[in-house]
Write a protein that binds this DNA or RNA. Structure first.
Lengths: 307, 307
DNA sequence: ATGAAAGCGCTAACAT
DNA sequence: ATGTTAGCGCTTTCAT
């Protein structure tokens, strides 16, 4: 035989199925002796509720699906932490799928998630078409982190990129730097590149291309954050004596390597998104979508110093 | 109304429910005109199969649950890639949960996974008790990556740690290094530390503690990998001129930073684990457990040079 | 090749 | 406080 069912537990405890169901869901209206007996029987049999059956019968699954573009992105990991923290407040379990870098797979992963009939979905930095997101949101409460959609039903939580660039530049300017450059390694151009150019920064895509005159650099991108530091150091330029470095993003090891960073706190983004989603799940589709913008946080460590 | 059901599709296409079910699962024994009509109707209604109902009725869910200790671990991300690659060969969807660093939460996450009645589960570097793993494996095919269990039903795939240390030391020795040290930053001591000590390496837990005499260091741990490099560089020691560095693990940016690494290829671990699991799913619990050990791979980049 | 009918394990409304 | 019952949406024999 496979897994024991509610019925098995009921038989062993000498009660009805419904009573067991009540006990399993922690209903307060079951007499103590009965409850004890039921729990005991369940334990003895090694019973575990079947979420498939429960979800089907209840019309809600208690699942919140999380779509991640890629597990390698440390920013997404931090967002997920925030999601999980906040999810603890609701009666909800997080289940993650990933697109592994390809939009097509991301869409497939999202569809797999939706087939589970989750109570809601969170899309982290989705690369799929806006129309696909909108379609998903039509059938299931949805929140998006790190991308701003014009939508009537999706909650969006994003960092304030322009402010981030401005603050980074301001910090460097305050330290007396005049020659600043922006380093955007990474396969695709960072969404921040535009803001950097607008702010008058020279943008280069490799450390060697940095103008010698630059005494300060703003590096873009989570994954390439500490890479910029090592590249600089190995090129024989001392940091921060010769050149100051600010990284935009939340690279792993930034703290250990003591690099100054600026970024919207990713866990905060996650927390806000989950909070918005949970309230949307509670209030029904009526709730009007929230569009939250989180200010960046500047963590001054030891890679920035006076010019 | 909520989501359209099989019945809705059947009604619209003017056929029976069973026929639609066959079409949805791609059965070959449905006449072409009918099939077309059904698919058309499904598309028009925006039908999506309900996995809860399907899983309940079919007795299998097509889900493989993946338990990750922590999304921040780049090694686990790579393992997951391998799992996903191999999973594409089976008719299976990956769903991930995480313990976020705490064994208690990891166990909870595992239980949530098991409640879904997955066709199988993969545990990546689990920190929970062996008994808990064994219990899980009793009800559901299970594979473990990165930890070796003595079990009659769990497949285990691990890297060969001793060989890794040996090869790292051999590589350094070949380059003429005699003073070698091992750097094990990280909250908990690395499982490799023992092997390093056994090999006669001095183990220190902070870069400053490295003996000046050491001309080569073996750094342990995925997350702290490039950290070791920056710490060395910023301490004014040139790499590899003054000191050679090998990192054990798969730190993000290792390639970009050109650091020499040694590690079992994590994606390979994942691929093997999923392959083992899928064959176990097919063959039933009868299959005897596989215990696979993957040899390390040495990636010589630019942080190691002759003494 | 297609349809009819019996569940899968559970919840929820109702009855007692 | 506890039991009865009718589904939830689907798969799967078994007829036809």
């Amino acid at each position: 035989m496979g897994h024991p069912t509610l019925e098995d537990v009921a038989a062993r405890a000498g009660v009805s199925r419904a009573l067991v169901s009540l006990v399993m869901r922690g209903s307060p209206k079951v007499a103590e002796p009965r409850r004890k007996a039921v729990l005991e029987a369940a334990r003895e049999l090694g019973y575990r509720p079947n979420m498939m059956a429960r979800g089907l019968a209840a019309g809600r699954t208690g699942i919140v699906g999380v779509l991640l573009p890629d597990l390698h992105d440390p920013g997404c990991a931090a967002v997920h932490d925030g999601l999980a923290d906040e999810a603890a407040h609701g009666d909800v379990r997080l289940l993650a799928t990933t697109g592994r870098g390809r939009p097509a797979r991301e869409l497939a992963a999202l569809n797999d998630l939706l087939d589970l009939r989750p109570d809601g979905v969170v899309l982290c930095g989705p690369r799929i078409a806006a129309a696909d997101i909108e379609r998903a949101a039509a059938g299931c409460p949805a929140a998006v982190v790190g991308r701003s959609l014009r939508s009537t039903r999706v909650d969006c939580v994003t960092g304030d990129d322009t402010a981030a660039v401005e603050q980074a530049i301001a910090h460097l300017a305050e330290l007396g730097h005049r020659g600043m450059a922006c380093l955007d390694v990474g396969a695709r151009p960072s969404p921040l590149r535009g803001a950097c150019e607008a702010a008058g920064l020279t943008v280069v895509t490799a450390p060697e291309e940095l103008p010698r005159a630059a005494t300060a650099v703003l590096a873009l991108g989570d994954t390439t954050g500490t890479t910029a530091l090592t590249a600089l150091l190995r090129a024989g330029r001392r940091v921060p004596e010769d050149v100051s470095l600010i990284v935009h993003g939340t690279p792993p090891g930034a703290e250990a390597a003591q690099v100054t960073t600026i970024a919207p706190p990713p866990a905060e983004l996650g927390r806000l998104a989950m909070a918005a989603l949970l309230s949307r799940v509670k209030d029904g589709p009526s709730a009007k979508p929230q569009r939250l913008t989180v200010p960046p946080r500047l963590d001054i460590r030891t890679t920035t110093a006076p010019a």
